[in-house]
Design a protein around this nucleic acid. Structure first.
Length: 142
DNA sequence: TAGGCCATCTGGTCCT
DNA sequence: AGGACCAGATGGCCTA
């Protein structure tokens, strides 16, 4: 993609102080800055590729609009917890095959995904009711 | 037009 | 020294 800020970048802003110093130092600093920018772009592209891959495996329920990064993470979290619930409930003694199938159907429903119907308060309830351990404070930012 | 989302640049920090 | 990672700042694009 075309750079959005070509005007003020890729030329290295460390230049102001270095202008008064040797041209070699200025050149080196500029080259380093440009290389760092390129690396950062590549790193962020890698991150975005990872987000795209995550979007593909996370439920979307016909949402025509692509999930934002934040929504993708929230959805992944909810999805993992729903799957976890399926597994833990299936391990309970006395769960027959039919009940287990119904459980799966119930768990993987849009209403079980707070990121689609966003309600911060409800999300906390959901987290605590559907997961077998208490999430640390830092793990759930709303 | 405001607000949300995003890409990019940048400087700081940590690590090798 | 240089690379990886991060967070803040900035500005563009899109939608309601």
């Amino acid at each position: 993609m075309k750079s959005r800020r070509q005007s003020c970048t890729d030329s290295g802003s460390e230049s102001s102080e270095l202008d008064s110093k040797s041209p070699e130092k200025y050149e080196t600093a500029t080259r380093r800055r440009m290389a760092a920018n390129a690396r950062e772009r590549k790193r962020m592209q890698g991150l975005n590729t990872a987000f795209d891959r995550l979007r593909k495996v996370v439920p979307q329920w016909g949402q025509d609009k692509k999930l934002s990064k934040y929504e993708t993470l929230q959805m992944a979290l909810s999805y993992i917890m729903a799957l976890n619930r399926i597994l833990t409930d299936a391990k309970r003694p006395g769960t027959c095959h039919r009940q287990w199938l119904e459980l799966q159907f119930d768990c993987v429903q849009p209403e079980n995904y707070p990121c689609l119907i966003y309600d911060p308060a409800g999300e906390q309830d959901y987290l605590h009711s559907s997961f077998s351990y208490q999430l640390d404070e830092h793990q759930v930012h709303t």
